[in-house]
Design a protein around this nucleic acid. Sequence first.
DNA 1: CAATTTACTTCACAGCGTATAGTTTCTTCA
DNA 2: TGAAGAAACTATACGCTGTGAAGTAAATTG
Lengths: 238, 238
Amino acid sequence: MTVTGSKGRRERLRAETTAEIKKVALALMASGGPDAITLRAIAREMGMTANAIYGYFATRDDLVTTLIKDVYTALADAVDAAWEAAPATDPAIRITAWATAFRTWAVVNAQGFRLIYGDPVPGYHAPEGGPAPDAARRVCTGLTALAAAAWPHTQHLYEHSAFGWSDFDPALLDKVRPAFPDLPPAAVALALRIWGHLHGLVSLEVYGHMHTQTTSPEKLFEEELAQLVQMLGVPRRS
Amino acid sequence: MTVTGSKGRRERLRAETTAEIKKVALALMASGGPDAITLRAIAREMGMTANAIYGYFATRDDLVTTLIKDVYTALADAVDAAWEAAPATDPAIRITAWATAFRTWAVVNAQGFRLIYGDPVPGYHAPEGGPAPDAARRVCTGLTALAAAAWPHTQHLYEHSAFGWSDFDPALLDKVRPAFPDLPPAAVALALRIWGHLHGLVSLEVYGHMHTQTTSPEKLFEEELAQLVQMLGVPRRS
DNA sequence: CAATTTACTTCACAGCGTATAGTTTCTTCA
DNA sequence: TGAAGAAACTATACGCTGTGAAGTAAATTG
């Protein structure tokens, strides 16, 4: 045991270098997009050679995968925090807060959004099960919380839903069902559909496709939220 | 005038080579994704050197831009055709047909969808106004037709809409307003929102994010359509 | 203090887009 | 018909990328 930590000096330096690599990579991404994440550029920035990075990440794709996981986790943290900060007694406000946090994060961290949801980087292929299934499922669980909050008011619309538990990934259900024991499959389907709605508007905006059509994507998103709350039938201003 | 065409042999060969470059590029894309579109690979496939392509396209980005335009036009053709083929008297069927054609095209031409809506290719930057604004606006116009068909049944939901004509791109309005003179701004906003809904679900599916959560994205999309028609309030089975 | 592990550099190779210069082939006009 | 000119294409080269193999210097360990 030392004052600087329990592990030896070597491991501490190693952890610091690893952190710096990621930090520099994210900075490059922020300024030049995911494409700008190159080993040589990172090394240049750090005053090293590109091959030195191989001591910390087995391959460039490994680094990118780690970055995706980190960035995705940051997104999940942001929306979770917004959800928790809103009053649990008012589903409409909570849902609006979650979705607004989602879009705000995406607009502020546009390159991070592209890293997570687009083709991250030339030639990158995600490892089995996606790069950040945990973070993705955290987001989905958050969405299910959203659907769960609205479910008492909206379930009457889905009495003829064709969904069963077998339609969903077991790993997702492992997280979702214990958290919301009374929720039927139709509610999870609703959560995924809401995800689609929000993701679509935001990704069109982030990738610049909305900008060609409308000058106020934010207003569009706000109307979307108003409609969402209305469609879900949750009471407003409770 | 010759039997093979009005332009000289030279121009005909030139057009054929141009077409072959695009064909090979699309084939490479279909098998290896947008990243596989490299001048050297195309040239290899054609038995030429990479530099020969510079006689037909000033730069690789020029080629990619042309491909985006072509592919986007194919998408616009597909959804337009589905719309026209459905009975004009039944908005519900027409809307469903349009959206189904959209998803089907995207799933079948997944790499084309990524080319259009993702970061197409390493380092690619779209020229001013986007690469295929025409095709994009054709799709938006199609969406507006969708909203227009539903408008009589759904306008009561948007009486307090905050949208004005200034919220939209003039080039879009030039196409949309003459075609649907009685439509208010709120209907165009609705069209863009529907675009977002469909685009989100489809792009999550195409990029493999849905697959981590549900085994039946198609069922999800079908429920989305059913809900869309219901939300719009258009009569079913008229 | 010697042996080993770790961190890093150097060199190399293949792939990419693309600029420049040179070559071959076709078209056109006197 | 033959010379001039344009068009199509190749060859070479440069800088960028990821990454493998080999070598070096410093820190850690016995």
